[in-house]
Design a protein around this nucleic acid. Sequence first.
DNA 1: TTTTGCTGACTGACCGGTCAGTTAGCCTGT
DNA 2: ACAGGCTAACTGACCGGTCAGTCAGCAAAA
Lengths: 197, 197
Amino acid sequence: MSDDPVRDRTDDIMCATYRALCRHGHADLTMQDIADEWSKSKAALHYHYDTKRGLLLAFLEHLFESYTDCVTDPGEGDATDRLGALIDDALDPPGTAANRELRTALFEIRACAPHDDEFRARLERFDRYLHDEIERIVTEGVEAGVFRSDVDPETTATLLVTLVDGGHSRRIVLGDDGGVHTAIRAAIGDRLAGGIG
Amino acid sequence: MSDDPVRDRTDDIMCATYRALCRHGHADLTMQDIADEWSKSKAALHYHYDTKRGLLLAFLEHLFESYTDCVTDPGEGDATDRLGALIDDALDPPGTAANRELRTALFEIRACAPHDDEFRARLERFDRYLHDEIERIVTEGVEAGVFRSDVDPETTATLLVTLVDGGHSRRIVLGDDGGVHTAIRAAIGDRLAGGIG
DNA sequence: TTTTGCTGACTGACCGGTCAGTTAGCCTGT
DNA sequence: ACAGGCTAACTGACCGGTCAGTCAGCAAAA
């Protein structure tokens, strides 16, 4: 792959962790599962990462980079279209196979946050990133006159991030979409264009 | 307490489970923890509930009853006020001490849903109940002319339930409110009164 | 006497983490 | 060219601890 064997190996381990998480979920994930996906021994994994927790924290950082690559303001076109595309990507990050499994695993990992500040800090970054992307698009949309002039970008961003969070939660718990997309589009319509969807 | 010793004992176990969940969270919850709160042995717990999973499923049913008692359409007053009160209760079910701990534990339990249909079914009931309560209030509000006539109660209910779910998720992961209440009130304003909060 | 409710001791499985030892590759002095 | 020394990476066996669930037996109620 690259000319950096250390980087290659780290990528291998992250990919193995990804596959193991999709296959087993977070609750049932063992170091052995990850080692199996990596086709190396469990001890080799502990050679590179002292603890399971450390490995998972590293994985979250790795995932955040992919996330900011996939879920990003397209930067061109109407603010309405950009916002719509961003939200769609946030609900269904593209470019990753086994999407549903990964979302499920990430959802399980969120349950660690209340008990572990380092996990919480990593997960906060995902939310804050999306919040800021939305806020920027809304601000620009208001300035360009595409959106109503009386919307508050900050409140709007919080509203939409909360909806995306809730959407993930509902889709995972209820198992299907359940009208989440429709509801979010309706909320955007209410707020930014003053229409009712 | 009551004159039904079986019912009393069941209540005792449910209360013990509640306290153990608040104290340890779901991820770290053991049968021993619940037995300790109950001041009986772990084997006694297994005498009444064959498996830990069975006990937890029973607990979810028990909790659903409390939920429908606490979180309910007040039935009197303006539809706007009733909806606001319902949403407030849904975000912070009253009448239970250690509220934050219980919400956290319930959030952790949600992570079981993708892997266990019986857990999913129990959790779906919470969402569906809230959805239907909201939908009814919105429908009545539209009929009474309090809300705009062009809102769709079904979509609105999905929107608000998703927001409440997302609100719980954000409060637990981020640790504080983070403007969720404000955002939800703004969304209600957008949709039902056509104003901007 | 039988049933109900319970206890303490126990089992079996699992899992994170450790450790002694092996292998492959690389540098260095001769 | 090559022997010796060193290190990074890895393996297989193992340890300590945890936890759900079991079981034989005891006490009190019915």
